[in-house]
């Protein structure tokens, strides 16, 4: 996040304009993988990666593996949305920066994010749109224009879905316990109410 980058608002706006058809195409069961491989290949070749896909790239297998699985479909969907975002004017003008995202896109972080949040939320939900823009920029060591490093880190921490997921899971467990207590209390109250009958 050391390098000041593009306007946050313009990238968030671009995500909102991602056509649903584009997302559906990359999530398609039959042709989705091939379409996505082509889109990503073209994008990163545009940004200076001479040969984004290695021969028999294991990442291909990751995208093809069990094509009907929801997890793979989501993974492809998120990669498609990121590809759409990467076609913004700022990235085109800063190709060397944009190309830094390639290893990150192939890594675990994107995969993990895709398993927690539906891809369509990255185009419809304001917080998730902002989160995706920020993590993409962070992968290039870039922060949104007009922000300090500290502000940028703070906002990233607030929007972090992975971290939120851990706490939400713990909260759900606590909530389940609370619900059981509530149920027991309601039963107790009903018994007390019944015992009042005829007093």
């Amino acid at each position: 996040m050391n390098i000041p980058g593009p306007s946050l608002d313009s990238l968030i706006h671009r995500l909102g304009e991602c056509p649903p058809e584009f997302l559906e195409l990359t999530m398609e069961e039959s042709r989705g993988t091939e379409i996505l491989i082509a889109i990503l290949g073209d994008t990163f070749m545009e940004y200076g990666e001479h040969n984004p896909w290695q021969a028999e790239d294991p990442f291909h297998d990751q995208l093809r593996h069990k094509p009907t699985d929801a997890s793979v479909r989501r993974h492809r969907g998120l990669l498609g949305v990121i590809a759409w975002l990467l076609f913004d004017e700022w990235f085109q003008q800063n190709a060397s920066m944009a190309s830094r995202a390639w290893p990150w896109m192939r890594g675990e972080e994107v995969l993990e994010l895709s398993q927690l949040v539906r891809p369509e939320l990255f185009t419809s939900d304001m917080d998730r749109r902002e989160e995706l823009v920020r993590v993409l920029l962070a992968s290039m060591d870039v922060r949104p224009a007009g922000e300090t490093i500290e502000q940028s880190r703070d906002r990233m921490a607030t929007l972090d879905s992975v971290e939120r997921s851990k706490v939400v899971q713990a909260t759900k467990a606590a909530e389940r316990r609370a619900r059981e207590i509530r149920k027991a209390m309601a039963q107790k109250a009903a018994l007390e109410s019944a015992s009042r009958y005829g007093e």
Binding site: R74, V117, R164, S165, E175
Partner: peptide, 23 residues
């Protein structure tokens, strides 16, 4: 319900392996 139980609010909807392909 706790907002954590509401996917709309948590923004989280962990993958379900039985998820259908059509929304």
């Amino acid at each position: 319900i706790h907002p954590a139980e509401d996917p709309e609010l948590s923004g989280l909807d962990p993958v379900d392996l039985d998820e259908q392909s059509t929304p």
